[in-house]
Design a protein around this nucleic acid. Sequence first.
DNA 1: TTAACGTTTGTCCAAACGGTCAAATTTTGC
DNA 2: GCAAAATTTGACCGTTTGGACAAACGTTAA
Lengths: 204, 204
Amino acid sequence: MDGKVTPKRTRIQREKRELIREAALEVFSQYGFRGSTIDQIAEAAGMSKPNLLYYFKNKEEIFATLIQRLLETWLAPLKEMDAEGEPQTEIRSYIRRKIEMARDFPRESRLFANEILQGAPRILPMLEGELKALVDEKAAVIGQWMREGKLKKSDPYHFIFAIWATTQHYADFDVQVRAVLGPVRGGEGRFEDAARFLEGLFLG
Amino acid sequence: MDGKVTPKRTRIQREKRELIREAALEVFSQYGFRGSTIDQIAEAAGMSKPNLLYYFKNKEEIFATLIQRLLETWLAPLKEMDAEGEPQTEIRSYIRRKIEMARDFPRESRLFANEILQGAPRILPMLEGELKALVDEKAAVIGQWMREGKLKKSDPYHFIFAIWATTQHYADFDVQVRAVLGPVRGGEGRFEDAARFLEGLFLG
DNA sequence: TTAACGTTTGTCCAAACGGTCAAATTTTGC
DNA sequence: GCAAAATTTGACCGTTTGGACAAACGTTAA
């Protein structure tokens, strides 16, 4: 009926496909889809171009599997925000998780940023569907917390946008952050500093 | 001595060069440097590729003049922040100006974001030089205001980053913002809503 | 051992790319 | 009005790109 079956894969296929995804993430996150070439990705993966195309039909397909995986990673932290939890704690954890993602998965963040910058041609339906639904739900929770006086009153949607913007900034604009902070303050501690600052900003 | 002279330009040259810059901004801000083609820009400018190359030596040069102009626009609002002014007023004006820029010059914002995402290959010296110096200066001012109790105490550098991140978010991630807000709340009023929210966040 | 299957690569192709050039056309200054 | 200068374009070039293909090489299991 479906016509679409999960293809059986050998051990080598699973490993090589993962290797290619890793290389593609590196390249795509820096140059965007149009700015990246299959040759670049193949070289980063340590294989020939035809060999890479043995594992992925074409450039689009590599990008597609990357985006698909990215979206799950991306929605997870917000999904975890628990309506039954302590508001301050929930927001604090959310900020922490997002800053950790900026620190540990900057390439994923940049890939996402690149896609949005270009008008989100491949993920617009998901933004208007799944993401909007999730944000609507969580914004309602946050709004309730605000009405209960557990959080300072403001617009829940823009509150969420502000957390996204500030946390992802440390991944997407990392070069600028380090340039401005200089070698001393721009070291590894910058993410911890950022986390503390943002907790104060959003919860203070 | 200098060897570099401002070339004399005819009326047509001035007009056409401006036309090309406008078209190039449109294209580069969406696809980045590597992802954009001269043909795309030429078409957007309504002329043939050779004709475009009559006005600009090559792709790099178009991009360079765009970046150069962008940087001036970009630093202006922060420069205007006045150490002698009323702290609350100065911060509020700064946020307003930045939100207005996100609304009125989204392409410039995206061009900048694109450049930083790719590691700022063409403007890193400026970030480490001029920008760092400016931020150092203004962070000192903000730090003084905080010590005087005119602003809530926090880290002045991350305070500035947070203003950048949140305001530019409304230009760079506009597609996402509109997708999440939906057709009703995502209308023209979203920038005014954002401005009010951000004033509360940073000054409340 | 060997046949079947999975993997890898050199070679090739057409389209797209950045850029050149000479010839044709238009504008300008006298 | 006309010559010089400025502008525009079609045709072209070498390179890069995404992708196809068949032949060669490895692996596996009967």
